[in-house]
Structure formats: structure tokens, C-alpha cells
Deep mutational scan, measured.
Amino acid sequence: HNLTITQGKLFFHYNPKLCLSEIHKMEEVSGTKGRQERNDIALKTNGDQASCENELLKFSYIRTSFDKILLRWEPYWPPDFRDLLGFMLFYKEAPYQNVTEFDGQDACGSNSWTVVDIDPPLRSNDPKSQNHPGWLMRGLKPWTQYAIFVKTLVTFSDERRTYGAKSDIIYVQTDATNPSVPLDPISVSNSSSQIILKWKPPSDPNGNITHYLVFWERQAEDSELFELDYCLKGLKLPSRTWSPPFESEDSQKHNQSEYEDSAGECCSCPKTDSQILKELEESSFRKTFEDYLHNVVFVPRKTSSGTGAEDPRPSRKRRSLGDVGNVTVAVPTVAAFPNTSSTSVPTSPEEHRPFEKVVNKESLVISGLRHFTGYRIELQACNQDTPEERCSVAAYVSARTMPEAKADDIVGPVTHEIFENNVVHLMWQEPKEPNGLIVLYEVSYRRYGDEELHLCVSRKHFALERGCRLRGLSPGNYSVRIRATSLAGNGSWTEPTYFYVTDYLDVPSNIA
């Protein structure tokens, strides 16, 4: 807008934040220059609390790290170098490059900038070799853009010569660093050979998330399962459950009422301010606690030095998902009996873990797994792929695949051998790939016309006998059925096997 004052003059007093240069501009645009008398524009009460600059400061050096910015700028000295009290560095987070010096300023003089007072450097006698002032900004957020400017702080001049310097606002972004852990990993099994893994992005990506790394490792069953005799009275049979499938998407929606109208769909109840505040506090606490764990609990591995020492970490090797089922080394339970199943799973520490690289999504279907087997899954978020990966501390989750139908069934015939004193040795093959492992066998036998009897055969007993022995049988026709019990439950009964026990007292003698 054009402003013209045809008559009258300007009068400025007691404006401590208004620089004289701005008042002189007002004289020019209003056409009143030359009308004012000496005392109409006070030299001592206008701009006496402001830094009124008329020179431009330029930054000469900028260096960044993930949490620091090192700045240096060209030296500046007023005509009387004693008038320079120091520099004021202003900075704040700036997602967009549209910041002005006066953003967030209120009537009390406060604003949204963080201000650092910096002492002037030592003055050199040689004007050509003056030290460049600077400042190291610490405690910054990774991968965050900051708006920065600097200006001088000078003393009051009796001659009211307006001098000083100020830089333009520059924008500097800190470097990326390792992201925080992925949030809320959930693993479920939808079949006997697959596990579905879902997660949420890290709360602090500290860069642009480029991919996720998912490692999985087959877990050995508890050692007590191999040692305890679950045929003993009072000892509860062990059981394991597989990871249940995901709930429906509708039930997972946030901010939804727990109660549904019987007449149909209901609208979600909005969260109160107290609920939102509580969630923010919980989120802040979780982030602080995660940072504490990362800094205190997890110790970084030592990389190899120039002395030739090897990095103890196993090298990563990509495998196809079809090879995942046989990740671990199978060892027989008892070496003397080769027909026992290889369900003991000690994992070799030198073995390469299978892994998958996930790009542009937060889910993965891990296939080719062994049925009813526990897996430990390790999830890392990465925001750099080359020249070397920059990934987060791992988040861990466990899951067990679903049982395989008929995996616990005894394959092959049940054979028998009759000894003296009416002892019958029953023999059968253990299931080759049971659900988890076989903890015991149930032997059901009966003599024709009598009630059915049951015998429990422990895992250890089966390994020693290759089956079991029935003792003290009365003469007669017998039928026997056997079924295995694994961590997933009972298998199917075998087809009945028949044998006849004679009275050993009636056996004919070869003595003449």
C-alpha cells in the first residue's frame, strides 16, 4: 500500500525493539523526510534493546553428524571492536523451508527459537588472519532439518551509529543413524509349514526405512522333555500350542467401542483428552525405555581390526524358502538304536541362519518350516543398504507352526516275539517326523474274553527296548493296539495285532 503524509511529521519514542533503520525507511515511504526535528525521533529510546544489523554474515563451514552440527561463519568486528559482546545463534526444527525470524513471537518477546549466546573469538592483530567464530550444536535429532541463523550482539553506541551483522536463515539436516526397533511384532501360524509375521514401523526411523531383515531359527525343545518319565503317576503330560491366527481386521481397528449394538453396526467412541494424553505418555515412556535398553543392555560386537582377528559373527547367506525346513542338525536320541526319531534339535552355532529381506511392506510369510516346531524370529529395521547396512537392534518374537495331521501315527506293522515265561516283546517304529517329539506310547492289549488293559511306555523305555515287553501273560489269544502321544496330543491307534500265548508248562520236552 502507498502511504503519503502531505502535512505533519513523524514522532517515535520509547520503541526499544524498533531499529532506527526501520524508522528511516518509514520517513522515505511516507514522504516526511526532512520535516522531523532532532528530538522527534529519539536516538536513545528507539532500538536500544534490539540488534540492528546492516551487514550480512556468511557461514564459512558446515559439518553434520547424526546428532551434531558444527558451524563456522566469517569474522565480524565493528569499528570499535570492544562493542562486540558476542553472537546469538538461533535454531529450531523446520520440516519445511518457510521459516521466518519472527515465527511464534508474542507480545512478551518470546519466540519459538532456541538461542545460544556465543563469546567472540580472540581478536588477531592481523586483519587478514582473524579467527572464524563458530559453535557445535549438540543433542539434535537424527535425520531432522533445522533452520539456523546467527547475528551479532553489540553494545549501545553513544554516537548512535547503527552497526551489526546478521546471516540469512539456512537449512541444515542432520545425518541418518540406526533406527529404533520395529514396533509390535506379531507372529502367527496359518499352516503346519508357515508363519505369518506382521509389525509396525519404528517410532524413530532416523532416516528413510529402506528394508527390513527377518531372521528365523528353529528352537530346540526343553531338555526336561527328553529326561522326564511322563508315565509316572502324578506327572502331567506336557503340551505345546501353536500360535493362533490373526483376529479379523475389524476387531483390530483402534479407537473402536468394545460393545456392539445388537441391531447392527455401531460407531466408534472418540477417545477423551485424558485417554489420548495417557497414550502419549505411555508411548514416550516406551521410547525412553527402549533407548535405555539399547544403550545399557546391548553391547556392540567388536569388529575385526587390522591384526587379522576374525569377526566372530557368522556370515549372512541367503537361502531359498524351500530350504528352511531342514535348518537344524538332527541327532538321534540314543545312538545305539537307529530307529528312534531325530527330534532332539541342538543347533550348531556355526550354522548360517536363513533370512529374508523385506522391502516396502511390514509383513512376511515364512514358508518351508517344520510342522509343530518353535521358531525364534528376529526382526531388524534398516535405513541404508549400501555401502553397508545400517540397521536397528533386533526385536524378537516366537511362534510355533501348526501340527501336521497323521504325523504322530505309527507307520509300519507292530511285530512281536514270544519268549519263555510268557513274555512277549512288542516292537514298532517311532514316527519319523512327529509333531514336536514323542513323549510316550500307549499300549492297549486284551486277552479274548477279558477286559482291555493299558500300559504306558516312556520315551526312554522305548529307546532301550525298541518297544516294550509284556510279562506274566496268561495263555490265550491276544490283540494289541499302540498309539503315540506327542507334544500336540495323541496320534491314531494302530491296526490290531494278534498273537497267541501258550502255557509254557505244557511245552513238550526233548528229553527222552
Rank of each mutant, 00 (worst) to 15 (best):
370 R>S: 13
385 D>M: 07
365 V>H: 02
386 T>E: 10
232 L>A: 10
269 C>L: 10
282 E>M: 07
397 V>D: 03
315 S>H: 11
273 D>M: 11
465 E>F: 10
479 S>V: 05
223 S>N: 11
438 I>Y: 02
495 E>V: 03
504 Y>P: 09
489 G>L: 05
255 N>L: 03
375 Y>K: 01
326 N>L: 15
238 P>Y: 09
433 E>R: 12
261 D>S: 11
246 F>C: 10
416 H>F: 06
325 G>W: 13
217 E>G: 11
488 A>P: 02
339 N>G: 06
377 I>V: 07
344 S>Y: 07
207 G>I: 05
289 F>L: 09
255 N>M: 13
452 E>V: 07
453 L>C: 03
439 V>H: 09
317 K>W: 04
397 V>Q: 02
502 T>S: 06
401 T>Q: 01
358 V>P: 07
421 N>T: 11
358 V>K: 13
335 A>Q: 07
466 R>S: 13
318 R>L: 12
368 G>W: 13
400 R>I: 07
396 Y>G: 11
309 A>F: 04
452 E>T: 08
373 T>V: 10
216 W>C: 10
243 S>V: 10
325 G>N: 08
366 I>H: 01
219 Q>S: 04
498 Y>E: 13
399 A>F: 07
282 E>Y: 03
343 T>M: 07
222 D>R: 08
236 K>E: 14
271 K>C: 13
504 Y>C: 04
489 G>D: 03
457 V>A: 03
344 S>Q: 15
362 E>H: 10
439 V>D: 03
458 S>W: 03
415 T>Y: 13
271 K>S: 07
246 F>M: 08
275 Q>Y: 08
496 P>R: 04
427 M>T: 11
236 K>I: 03
494 T>Q: 02
343 T>H: 11
364 L>P: 00
422 N>S: 14
257 S>W: 04
235 L>K: 06
369 L>T: 04
370 R>I: 13
206 N>A: 14
230 Y>E: 04
249 E>R: 07
338 P>E: 08
255 N>H: 05
468 C>H: 09
387 P>T: 14
454 H>W: 04
443 V>C: 02
502 T>C: 08
461 H>C: 10
383 N>A: 09
276 I>L: 06
378 E>S: 07
368 G>M: 11
376 R>W: 06
245 P>N: 12
395 A>S: 11
225 L>R: 09
455 L>N: 04
505 L>W: 06
488 A>M: 06
298 F>W: 06
459 R>T: 06
390 R>F: 05
319 R>G: 14
284 S>F: 09
248 S>V: 13
227 E>D: 14
203 S>F: 15
256 Q>H: 10
476 G>A: 02
404 E>A: 04
272 T>R: 13
421 N>H: 08
336 A>M: 08
334 V>Y: 09
316 R>T: 06
334 V>G: 10
402 M>C: 15
405 A>T: 09
237 L>P: 06
471 R>P: 10
315 S>C: 09
395 A>C: 08
258 E>N: 08
388 E>Q: 14
227 E>A: 06
414 V>K: 01
208 N>Y: 12
295 N>M: 14
376 R>S: 07
280 L>I: 13
476 G>W: 00
416 H>I: 07
228 L>P: 05
212 Y>R: 00
451 E>M: 15
240 R>S: 13
214 V>I: 13
316 R>V: 11
303 T>S: 10
455 L>K: 04
474 S>R: 04
388 E>D: 15
460 K>D: 05
497 T>V: 09
234 G>S: 11
279 E>Q: 11
329 V>Q: 07
327 V>Y: 12
267 C>V: 13
472 G>P: 05
429 Q>S: 15
213 L>T: 15
380 Q>T: 15
230 Y>R: 11
209 I>C: 09
464 L>M: 10
327 V>G: 08
489 G>F: 06
466 R>M: 11
476 G>I: 00
368 G>F: 06
236 K>C: 11
226 F>W: 02
223 S>W: 09
501 V>Y: 07
327 V>P: 10
495 E>T: 11
453 L>N: 15
274 S>W: 08
370 R>L: 15
417 E>S: 08
251 S>T: 06
250 D>G: 10
239 S>H: 07
270 P>T: 05
497 T>Q: 14
434 P>D: 00
402 M>D: 11
429 Q>L: 09
209 I>Y: 01
402 M>P: 06
364 L>G: 09
375 Y>Q: 01
436 G>E: 03
337 F>Q: 10
370 R>A: 13
437 L>C: 06
262 S>M: 13
329 V>F: 05
207 G>S: 15
445 Y>A: 15
234 G>W: 07
383 N>W: 07
488 A>F: 07
390 R>V: 13
403 P>S: 07
453 L>T: 08
469 R>L: 09
312 P>H: 12
358 V>Q: 11
338 P>D: 05
239 S>E: 11
472 G>C: 03
456 C>M: 03
482 I>P: 00
431 P>V: 05
460 K>M: 11
270 P>M: 12
340 T>Q: 07
359 V>W: 14
405 A>F: 11
407 A>Q: 15
368 G>D: 07
306 G>F: 12
403 P>F: 07
297 V>E: 08
300 P>R: 11
466 R>C: 14
414 V>L: 08
269 C>N: 13
265 E>I: 09
322 G>F: 02
470 L>V: 14
296 V>W: 08
285 F>P: 10
361 K>A: 10
462 F>C: 02
354 P>T: 10
472 G>N: 09
354 P>Y: 14
307 T>P: 13
229 D>F: 13
460 K>V: 12
438 I>C: 05
306 G>L: 08
431 P>Q: 01
245 P>C: 10
372 F>L: 05
443 V>T: 03
500 Y>H: 13
334 V>K: 15
223 S>T: 08
424 V>N: 00
302 K>W: 14
425 H>S: 12
476 G>H: 00
475 P>A: 11
495 E>L: 04
321 L>I: 03
262 S>L: 11
412 G>I: 03
502 T>I: 04
461 H>D: 15
210 T>Y: 07
287 K>M: 08
360 N>P: 08
400 R>A: 09
388 E>A: 07
340 T>W: 14
307 T>K: 11
280 L>R: 13
341 S>P: 08
314 P>V: 07
234 G>I: 14
226 F>A: 07
404 E>G: 11
315 S>E: 10
254 H>M: 06
340 T>K: 13
224 E>L: 05
372 F>Y: 13
279 E>F: 04
280 L>H: 15
242 W>M: 04
450 D>H: 14
404 E>K: 10
255 N>Y: 07
442 E>F: 12
236 K>Q: 14
437 L>T: 01
259 Y>M: 05
360 N>Y: 05
382 C>I: 01
449 G>R: 15
270 P>R: 12
471 R>H: 09
379 L>E: 00
238 P>N: 13
311 D>L: 15
440 L>G: 07
323 D>R: 11
434 P>S: 09
280 L>S: 05
303 T>E: 11
249 E>M: 05
231 C>E: 02
481 R>P: 00
264 G>V: 12
306 G>I: 13
242 W>S: 14
422 N>M: 03
216 W>D: 00
343 T>V: 09
297 V>T: 08
326 N>T: 07
393 V>Q: 03
235 L>Q: 07
339 N>Y: 11
482 I>K: 01
355 F>Q: 07
222 D>L: 12
313 R>F: 12
477 N>R: 07
493 W>H: 00
236 K>N: 12
241 T>G: 09
356 E>R: 09
284 S>C: 01
422 N>V: 04
286 R>F: 11
460 K>R: 07
502 T>P: 08
480 V>W: 05
366 I>R: 02
344 S>M: 09
208 N>Q: 15
372 F>H: 10
295 N>T: 08
325 G>F: 10
261 D>P: 11
336 A>D: 13
218 R>S: 12
377 I>P: 01
341 S>G: 08
209 I>T: 14
410 I>N: 02
320 S>A: 12
367 S>A: 15
353 R>H: 07
234 G>F: 15
369 L>R: 02
226 F>R: 13
494 T>V: 01
319 R>I: 06
349 P>T: 11
284 S>Y: 02
315 S>K: 11
263 A>W: 02
432 K>D: 11
370 R>Q: 12
356 E>F: 08
437 L>Q: 12
239 S>K: 15
215 F>T: 07
460 K>Y: 05
267 C>Y: 09
244 P>L: 10
436 G>D: 10
291 D>C: 09
274 S>F: 02
